[in-house]
Nucleic acid binder design. Structure first.
Lengths: 183, 183, 183, 183
DNA sequence: TATGAATGAGGCTTCATTCAT
DNA sequence: AATGAATGAAGCCTCATTCAT
């Protein structure tokens, strides 16, 4: 027999999700700063006052959204990296997952903000450096560079047309061997 | 004989600059979306109505600011790259100029948005690839990756503590040779 | 056999009292006008909707509170006056009881609004005038003056520091013999 | 030639007065706590936002109103008392002025809140006590009692029908000689 | 051309009240 | 009865914009 979830609670959960989904759309369209709470509830079947039964401010929604994204991104972004035996596998896994996310082909709601994965990526990089997979660089800076590059290139893929596989390959090579032609 | 600029016109020019400078500060502090025209004029010695003698909207100011930034950034970001004889020189010149800008040590007002230099960088990269300085990659993607990395790492430098010289060196090496340890 | 009060009814009585007590506090703190029904229920362990099982409006609560206060004040304020043989005893009994109430040392919940005792005081005064204890004045005006003075001076006692006994004596003399120094 | 007051400034002054007058009416009708800023501007020919060009809050208006009342009341309430040679003259001058104010027969806008005169009255009383006109009592308590009585009795006069002259006489006698019948 | 007050739309938040559970 | 979430009206305040001076 299925779990008997009380109806009230189910609706509460659903309304909360209405707001989060609407906020994701609105933030993506207008940017966080320009978005208003009214914009969010207007993108919802709920009444104005109902917003405050779930969140206290726009910032509050953003934090919830971030937590949600982090929870969803973490396993996807991390899975390939943990098993990577070489730097190439690591980078390839990272860019592949990141581009999939940005292009919405992943299982994760669109408008994913990769920055949610910063801490994980950094930790994975430090671990990989310790294992000798990577040169020892500033892991924070490298994580920032990888995420920023993935975000930008991924955005370009998502916006126009582009081949995620080829982009993954190029990005991997870029960060693997750099731009210097072989001597 | 020096140019005789009528007094009226000089004041006009000055007021326009008041608004642009205030807008740069305000946009940097609050983000473009969250900023209001009132915020801008409040950061100015001018009266509310005066804004509309110079600009028609917040967007209008943003475009002017972008044009200004592009004009100011172009020579600074480009100068070293044009003369670069090797990829290393090219990258080093780029990151050095970019970090200087982000840290406000450059001659350009802070809060510089590096994206204004995208088109130039891309062109420089294509030229460098043609000359064999760089591997032939997607120049757009590479420009995006370089700018994004510079923006992120530069932001980290500006925010906390960091050594621009060392960051320049690391970033240069990262993009020059990649992360793969020598065989 | 003791009265067997059904449990249900006991709880109902208790909830009603919760609301009345909370309302007294809230009205005292914010004033009747500024207080909201939400303020009242928030000062209660009850849920929002429950309020409407007991009262229909803020005004409704106020009336109930007033009736309660009148019922509680009446015997206290009246007891001494009824037996007073002289004007001095009358006034002394009145001020003593009033100040005790205002200072919360009486048996009655604080924040007592003395105006609830107006009608009684007026009647007592008329009776006392008829007995020749008092000069024949406008009993309504005198009652108003006595209550207002007691309220003000009592408020001063409750707020700051003050000696109720001394204040009672002074107020009694003030209204007994007036401010004129003996010839 | 008359003073040339710039038109803009005249209108500003007028609008400020619109708001103050409206606020006085609204506070008198609904009480300060229950009144809303919207109520005030609705009682005005001005637009909603205009309120904030003049005041920052309801409290701000109240303070301005109080200052205005104090400025208007001070000379009226004080004039007779300063010259009073006897306690009777003092009290008579006080009650006469106070009742005139409350009944709106004075030159001062109605809804006057006598409490604005507290500090002055207290000072006058202390001075009168020093001159031996009054018994030495707690001047603060006496001022409170007089104002409260004047407010209450004055309110009764204003509300219903009443003879201010007779009320003045009775109140004067009450505070002059007290309620005790002559032995 | 600069000023700054007026305007009313619209965003934020809380409220009274209802009603399914 | 008690609960507490939903509703939308309404209060608070700031905004973009206009326009008389």
């Amino acid at each position: 027999m299925d779990a008997v979830i009380p109806r009230r609670q189910r609706i509460k959960q659903q309304n909360r999700q209405f707001i989060l989904d609407a906020a994701r759309r609105v933030f993506a369209e207008q940017g966080y700063g320009a978005a208003t709470i009214r914009d969010i509830i207007r993108a919802t079947p709920l009444a104005a006052g109902t917003f405050y039964n779930y969140f206290t401010s726009k910032e509050d929604v953003r934090l919830a959204l971030q937590a949600e994204a982090a929870a969803a991104l973490r396993p996807i972004l991390s899975e390939g990296r943990a098993q990577a035996a070489t730097a190439e596998e690591f980078l390839s896994a990272f860019f592949s997952a990141a581009f999939a996310l940005k292009m919405g082909t992943g299982a994760v709601p669109a408008a994913a903000d990769l920055s949610a994965g910063f801490a994980d990526l950094r930790a994975d990089l430090e671990s990989a450096m310790a294992r000798g997979l990577f040169l020892s660089l500033d892991a924070g800076a490298l994580a920032a560079a990888l995420l920023a590059a993935a975000e930008e290139i991924g955005g370009r893929l998502a916006a126009g047309n582009g081949d995620a596989a080829k982009a993954t390959e190029e990005a991997t090579l870029l960060f693997l061997r750099g731009v210097q032609p072989p001597a």
